[in-house]
Every structure is written in structure tokens, then in C-alpha cells.
Nucleic acid binder design. Structure first.
Length: 515
RNA sequence: GGCCCGGUCGUCUAGUGGUUUAGGACAUCGCCCUUUCACGGCGAAGAUCGCGGGUUCGAGUCCCGUCCGGGCUACCA
């Protein structure tokens, strides 16, 4: 049978990188084996479900480029794909009845208070907490009938077999076993009639012919319950694959308090889907050789469970930046310009910086937001010019967001001047003459379409005639006059892109600053 | 507390008993390139393979113990 896997999120909040990793591994695995990837929405907890969250999951997954073969947004032979809808359609009812008739499930009429007291007593006595029998596991038919006649609310619990060893063969950890007496009886159907994850997910996995249950390690401890359920029905168990968690710098499972974990935020920060996937894939999985930067296709070709690691991994932001920068540098300028345009026009990009509160004094979100806005306008106004600018900055940025501030001086009427740079380079005696010479050259020596070499020759000529030993004292003041900064692309290249009109205006302003 | 999982440079990892003085990558530092910053190239530093026993001619690799970390312990997923 061909491989069938499912991504079954519970849309109760934002899509974070842990969930992305989960989806990515499944996607890579399905594609590698030419199998099927299903999206199933686990919304059995009606109090926590949010439609906005589901929308974010679907749109983020689309942005990142993970596509499903079946799901609520596209349909498929196993519809519906939302568990609440499946419940309404009566999918689970016959199965819970069958399980009870088989003796593998029973009604339990305990009240929440009774359960709480039970746990308290267990805690005090240093026993493991959980429902290992209570009064209802072994209640007589009469007791149950009486409780039902009273109209008492009840849940349906799974009757975990006692005094046996439950073992699974986990694809990344090997054999894992439990004494079944340490496994409590999980609730399968809640008092409101909704199935729990334990029940709905396993029934659906069986009904949808899921071959591999790939999920995070946090599920390992409930695996024996799930295995026992498959056994109770007499179904073939899927292969269990418990992947290591992505943890925060503190080594703990990723959560909101670990700061930036929302996938959308990475997109807003200018990370591209390709490198992000590449990076995420490398946490907890390795192709087995030294490869790091891999294309989508290489990832699919190389991915398999044998490369999945058992130990948890931390999210190394610096490495993500490196991978992203590598991808930017590898792009064709035209494609890059399109990528940047898409990025700028995604509403969340500007919203993100607008709402961002920086704890780093060197990072000013408002300034980044403005630079991004200016870049968008500049691209619209003069695309060929913007393309030349992008080409020059492509080699020195790591994220799409970096283009904003890196390119700003090209588009500003007159660039913002860095006072330190001005102080350092505008003091020497020849600077006034230098600027005059260059201003005079604009329109004569320098015309639209002049090459970098033309600018280089002119500056070198000035060097010779004024007998200046090095080119630095000429290049640096000119750079500061033109860009406002001491760093940036090669001076001659940027002059050629700027063109004589802009150069002249900037030099005239710089001359004023000499006085 | 109970059950389960994990433990190789700061970080991600290679390594499935012997070509290992433990390899690669990010980050760090140095040199080269160079008009600057990057990029790129070269190089350095950085891991007594958590610790202790054992098995073996030989262990990061197998076994036991121990420590530390983590996950789960809901009518959440």
C-alpha cells in the first residue's frame, strides 16, 4: 500500500514553527514515497477552536509551499475533514458502540469534583494520578442502568487491558514498552458527546488508511493507548513515528513565551519559504552527509525516517539567516525583485513592523517599516532603476527586510547623512576640490549610461593630478557624500546606477556641509 | 511523585565496534581579496563523545548503573 500521512492540527492559535516542522516532515515523507498527504482539522474541543486560526494555518501552509492532496479546503474521498463535521455526520457513533459491545469501553459517571478528589488523594499518597478503574470500570449492569435512569452525565472511557505489556515499534526509537497497569483509562467520548483526540484521531486514521502516524515526541506517552485502541478493534496498527521536539534556548518545548515562534512572523521578517523549510528540515533530521543548503527537490529526494534523530533540537536563528542570505544571493535578479514585491505587498509585513516593540536599541521597527514602504513605492515608480539597486545589494543582505534600509539611500531625494562618517571624511583639504571636479563632470564626463569604469577613471585621474597616494581619501568622501554612509556597494558601481543627476544633487548638498 | 524519551564542539549535526589524532555547517577569531561593508577563499580556536563500571584485542558506537535534561500525567490537542 502506498504511504498515506496526515497533518492533523488543532487550530487554537497561531501556526508556530513546531507545527510547521510537523507538517514539513509529513510532506517531505509523503512526496519522497509518492504518497498522499491529508489535512485534517482536529476541532473536537469546541471551546478552543477558532476559525481565524484555521484560516491562518491554511494560508501559512500555502505560503510555505506545503500542499495537501485531501483536506477541508479542497475536499477528497474521505470528506468531511473537520472532526466536528465528522461527528455530526455520525462517523464515530458506530465505532464507540462497537467498542463497548466488545467490552473495550465503558460509561463512567464520575463528576468533575469526584475526579479532582481522586487525583488529590492519589497525589497525597504519591501514587500516579489517573483513572485506573474508579467505580465504573467494573460497575455492574444494574449500577450503570440506575445512573442512566437518573439522567447523570457520563463519559465513555477506554478499558485498557490490565497485567500485560503494551509495546510499540517506534520508527525512530525502536521498541518502547509499558506495563499496561501504568496506563490510565482515557476518555474517548466527552460528556457533550464529542470524541476526544484519542478516539477521533485513531478512528479517522484507520478510516483514512493512514500508514504512518508521524507526530511530535509529546505524543509518545499516549502511544500505548492508541496502540491498544487499534488492537481492541482488531485493526492493523500504523507505523508510529515520534519525532524530536524543537525546543527553545532553555531546552523546553516551544511555546508562546519563547518569543518569535509564529511562522507568519518569520515571513514578515523577510525569510523566504525555501530556506525556512531547508532550515526546519535540518532540525531533527539529517540527509546523512554534509549537505546543508538543499533545494526543495533535494530535500524530497533525501528525506526518510532513517535520518530522523531521537534527540530534541534548538532553533538556531543565525543559521536560518545564513541560509536565507545564501538563497537570496542565488536568485536571478528579476525573480528576486518579484519576491521582494510580493513580500512588500503582503499586508502582514508592514503590520508586523508597525506592531513590533524592539528590545534592541539598534533596531528601530518604525524605521524599517518606513524603509520598506519607500522601497515599495520606488519599485512602482521606476522598476528598472530598482532592479539595478537590488542587484547591488543582493550580495550583502540576509533577509528581504534588509533590502529596505540597505537600498534607502538610492531612493531618497537626498540620503540621510551619518554624522560620524561626515566628520571622518569631509575634513581633508582636497575634498572641496574633489566635489567641484565631480560636479563639473556631471553631464559632461558623466552621462546617463556611463560605466563604472568611467567613474573609476575620473576618480583616479583626480588622484593623479592631485598627487594623492591612495584612492581611499578620494573614494570615502565621495561615498559619504553620495550615500551618507561609510559602507555599502562598490562606489563606481553605485555611481553608475545613481547617474549624473542624482550624483550632482548629492554632491552639491555635501559641498554645503563642508562650510 | 509515577511512566516514558533523550544526552557528540556555544548551536545544528556526521558517526550503526577497528582508515577517528572524532568529520561538516552556523556563530566566533585571524589572514587573503578589496575604495568601505558584505560576498568569496584560506586558516584557527572550540567536543576528555554527561559520568562510572563492564563486554571486547579494540567502544562515541554493545550492556549495566548513575547523573542531568525533557515529555506526558485534562471530559486540550
Amino acid at each position: 500500500m502506498s504511504v498515506r500521512v496526515r497533518f492533523a492540527p488543532s487550530p487554537t492559535g497561531m501556526l508556530h514553527v513546531g507545527a510547521l516542522r510537523d507538517a514539513l516532515f509529513k510532506s517531505l515523507f509523503a512526496r519522497h514515497h509518492h504518497g498522499v498527504l491529508i489535512l485534517r482539522i482536529e476541532d473536537t474541543d469546541r471551546t478552543r477552536y477558532s476559525p481565524e486560526s484555521e484560516a491562518e494555518f491554511i494560508s501559512t501552509l500555502k505560503w510555505v509551499g506545503i500542499e495537501f492532496d485531501e483536506g477541508p479546503h479542497i475536499g477528497g474521498p474521505n470528506a468531511p475533514y473537520r472532526q466536528s463535521e465528522r461527528k455530526e455526520a455520525g462517523v464515530y457513533q458506530p465505532w464507540i458502540e462497537k467498542l463497548m459491545s466488545l467490552g473495550h469501553a465503558y460509561k463512567a459517571f464520575d463528576t468533575p469534583q469526584e475526579l479532582e478528589e481522586m487525583r488529590e488523594i492519589q497525589t497525597i499518597n504519591k501514587q500516579s494520578t489517573g483513572y485506573y478503574g474508579g467505580v465504573w470500570r467494573d460497575a455492574t449492569a444494574e449500577q450503570v442502568a440506575a445512573a442512566e435512569a437518573e439522567g447523570k452525565p457520563y463519559v465513555i472511557r477506554q478499558r485498557i487491558p490490565r497485567d500485560i505489556t503494551i509495546s510499540i515499534h517506534d520508527a525512530v526509537r525502536g521498541r518502547v514498552e509499558w506495563d499496561s497497569n501504568t496506563i490510565d483509562d482515557p476518555v474517548l467520548i466527552k460528556a457533550d458527546g464529542m470524541p476526544t483526540y484519542h478516539f477521533a484521531s485513531m478512528v479517522d486514521d484507520h478510516l483514512m488508511d493512514i500508514t504512518h502516524i508521524i507526530r511530535g515526541e509529546e505524543w509518545l506517552s499516549s502511544a500505548p493507548k492508541h496502540a491498544a485502541l487499534f488492537d481492541a478493534f482488531g485493526w492493523n496498527r500504523p507505523v508510529f513515528v515520534h519525532c524530536p521536539l524543537i525546543v527553545g534556548l532553555d531546552g523546553k518545548k516551544l511555546s508562546k513565551r519563547h518569543g518569535a515562534t509564529r511562522v507568519l512572523d518569520y515571513a514578515a521578517q523577510g525569510f523566504m519559504a525555501g530556506p525556512l523549510k531547508n532550515f526546519i528540515a535540518l532540525i531533527g533530521w539529517s540527509p546523512g552527509d554534509d549537505r546543508e543548503a538543499m533545494s526543495e527537490q533535494e530535500l524530497v529526494d533525501a528525506f526518510d525516517i532513517s535520518g530522523v534523530q531521537p534527540s530534541p533540537g534548538k532553533f538556531d536563528f543565525e543559521k536560518l539567516k545564513w541560509l536565507n542570505g545564501l538563497a537570496i544571493r542565488a536568485m536571478e535578479p528579476f525573480a528576486l525583485l518579484d519576491e521582494i514585491t510580493d513580500y512588500l505587498r503582503t499586508p502582514y509585513t508592514l503590520d508586523y513592523f508597525n506592531q513590533l516593540v524592539s528590545d534592541d536599541p539598534k533596531v528601530d521597527p518604525k524605521k524599517i517599516e518606513k524603509a520598506l514602504l519607500d522601497l515599495d513605492r520606488a519599485i512602482e515608480k521606476d522598476k528598472p532603476y530598482a532592479l539595478e539597486v537590488i542587484k547591488l545589494e543582493q550580495q550583502r543582505v540576509q533577509t528581504l527586510a534588509d533590502f529596505g534600509e540597505a537600498c534607502a539611500f538610492f531612493f531618497a531625494e537626498l540620503p540621510e547623512m551619518d554624522p560620524k562618517a561626515v566628520e571622518k571624511w569631509f575634513g581633508q583639504a582636497h575634498v572641496g576640490q574633489l566635489f567641484d571636479t565631480l560636479i563639473a563632470g556631471c553631464g559632461t564626463t558623466f552621462i546617463d549610461g556611463s560605466d563604472p569604469v568611467d567613474y573609476e577613471n575620473a576618480l583616479k585621474e583626480f588622484q593623479v593630478t592631485h598627487q594623492i597616494e591612495k584612492l581611499g581619501p578620494i573614494v570615502h568622501p565621495t561615498r559619504v557624500a553620495l550615500t551618507g554612509k561609510p559602507t555599502g556597494p562598490g562606489l563606481f558601481e553605485l555611481m553608475a546606477v545613481l547617474g549624473p543627476a542624482r550624483i550632482k544633487a548629492r554632491l552639491l548638498r555635501a559641498k554645503e556641509m563642508l562650510k
